[in-house]
Amino acid sequence: MLAKRIIPCLDVREGKVVKGINFVGIKEVGDPVECAAEYDAQGADEIVFLDITASHEGRGTMLDVVRRTAQKVFVPLTVGGGIRTIDDFRDTLRAGADKVSVNSAAVKNPQLIREAADIFGCQCVVVAIDAKKCPDGHYTVVINGGRIDMGIDAVEWAKKAEELGAGEILLTSMDTDGVKGGFDLDMLNAVCSAVKIPVIASGGCGALEHFTDVFEKTGAAAALAASLFHYKELTVGQVKTELKKHDIPVRIV
């Protein structure tokens, strides 16, 4: 039986881990390689780097970060942010990433999912979906950090991504993201019941019980968190100890 995964996510810009402060400023808070190694030591089952570098030149810096991380961290590494082409997939995988996550580019060009899955295997194609609830109760796909509503139904998009060869869905609820009131269980249930591939829950966790909730009340295969781990409000180890108490299968290191 597969263990439920706990995945810390690091935002990386120009080769440094950064955190936004109240959506206005961004401050540098560390070296991504060191942060990833620390999470590995805590028992992270996978690590996600989200490249928020705006410039094209920054991509090389990110690949260097991936290369250096792969020399020190021996759990799967997923890299996303700004992935647009098959070459981006290839470069990132060659640098040492195990999976590549793609978001806006896949919404604009869904065939990118199929091409990447055909060439590199579906196991390394993670489709990240940012979504929010509409007044009519449906979930809609948004891109550019929630600013642009694509008018696409998120559940239908998840199904299509699976058909095209996505290996996993990384589902972020823009309604719960940053609120720390818990994962968006309704949205997760809507997507988990529509696809067979693993769904990673993202957005909203702020306390231990939110992890228990997401695994007891939804079919999510993994839970992702950024600030919670980054600001050491909780460690990966604490989360797993709590999950184990609730008989949720986890890998304890």
Partner: peptide, 27 residues
């Protein structure tokens, strides 16, 4: 679903030097 992707628990079937020093709850 296939592929089988993720962390799964090793269930020991016979003694093996590669498993030396490992516990019974290894993923």
């Amino acid at each position: 679903s296939i592929p089988h992707i993720g962390w799964n628990k090793l269930i020991i079937n016979k003694e093996c030097p590669l498993l030396s020093g490992l516990g019974d709850d290894e993923y």
